[in-house]
């Protein structure tokens, strides 16, 4: 046993920073906190403005399929629910991701492992440019160019696949459908997903790729055996980032989707919507009470995208740790 008085007194360990270090720390800390504060303020503001709606409608605001402000003088006659829009956001985003992820994988693998060096530089630059195109341009283009093309595709697609409920269109009206919006969103998120995929694929360990070759593997064998398993979780993170963008997209969806307040699973039919385009559509002429409802809808969208992005960074970080 060591006597208490024999235990040497602990010395204080102080690390002192130079003035420059201290100033730098302050600046960095402030900057870091600032973005968190802004994020928190946005959430608080939306909650404050939309709180009345949540207390009036409760959970039915999220599930409801009716958007009727009733008598503008009497708020108790209003029935407001964003269920159809929220579902629309999910459906269009899922269509976008289902199309975008395989394309992004193919493009990323081509750029990293097959393309000649010059083409690689060009493709990378082009993808960055595509990512920078304003969404309203995508929207106009989608309306003017993509719409007739998708309409042409939708007719035979419906004819062959109408035994699957989501592909059948009893109304016979195609046009501005969730499928069109989904395809457009896919084109918008492909650059994001591709750039994440490219980054994770480029970090695939060279020694394992060599090992595949030394075992008589082809290039595709090495990619399937090493690169794709290695990039799997990073790719999920990239897909989530793309999903975040697709969920929040406003103008492009506004221009290419008929706003209809019915939950519509028939992706080829001309009816749908998403939360962001609902807000954009109703904002200009909203009554005071309706405005609160739009704020509440904004909060729901905010939380959903935040959740998706948190999941994305969680998954990406976890894949980094494995490295």
């Amino acid at each position: 046993m060591i006597q208490d008085d024999l235990v040497p007194q602990h010395r204080k360990l102080v690390s002192s920073y130079t003035l420059v270090d201290r100033i730098f720390r302050r600046v960095i800390t402030t900057g870091g906190l600032f973005s968190l504060v802004i994020l928190g303020l946005i959430g608080a503001f939306l909650l404050y403005r939309g709180f009345e709606i949540f207390s009036d409608f409760g959970f039915s605001f999220i599930t409801g399929e009716v958007w009727n402000i009733g008598d503008p003088m009497d708020t108790s006659t209003a029935v407001l629910g964003i269920g159809a829009m929220l579902m629309g956001s999910v459906i269009t985003s899922v269509i976008a991701i289902v199309i975008a992820v395989p394309c992004a994988i193919a493009v990323a693998l081509f750029i990293e492992y097959y393309s000649p060096k010059r083409l690689r530089l060009i493709l990378t630059a082009v993808l960055d440019l595509v990512a920078a195109i304003p969404s309203v341009i995508f929207g106009i283009w989608g309306y003017a160019v993509l719409l007739p093309i998708i309409e042409d595709w939708s007719v035979p697609l419906e004819r062959w696949l109408d035994f699957i409920p989501i592909f059948s269109v009893p109304s016979g009206i195609f046009g501005r459908s969730p499928f069109l919006a989904g395809v457009l969103l896919a084109l918008m998120v492909i650059p994001i997903v591709t750039s994440v995929a490219r980054e994770v694929y480029s970090q695939a360990p060279r020694d394992l790729i060599d090992a595949s070759y030394a075992l008589g593997g082809t290039r595709w064998g090495a990619i399937r055996n090493v690169v794709i398993p290695f990039g799997r979780s990073g790719l999920v993170g990239g897909a989530m980032l793309g999903l975040g963008r697709a969920l929040g997209e406003t103008v492009a969806v506004y221009l290419t989707l008929n706003l209809v307040f019915d939950i519509n699973f028939r992706i080829l039919g001309s009816a749908g919507g998403n939360v962001a385009s609902l807000i954009a559509t109703k904002f200009g002429e909203a009554t005071e009470y309706e405005l609160k409802a739009l704020m509440a809808a904004g909060l729901v969208l905010f939380l959903v995208t935040l959740l998706v992005n948190f999941m994305a960074s969680f998954i990406v970080n976890r894949s980094r740790k494995i490295l």
Partner: peptide, 18 residues
Amino acid sequence: IDMRRRIGMVFQKPNPFP
């Protein structure tokens, strides 16, 4: 590719597929 199957190689750093 066929030739590498007949002339195998083991590397400096052990590299089993994870």
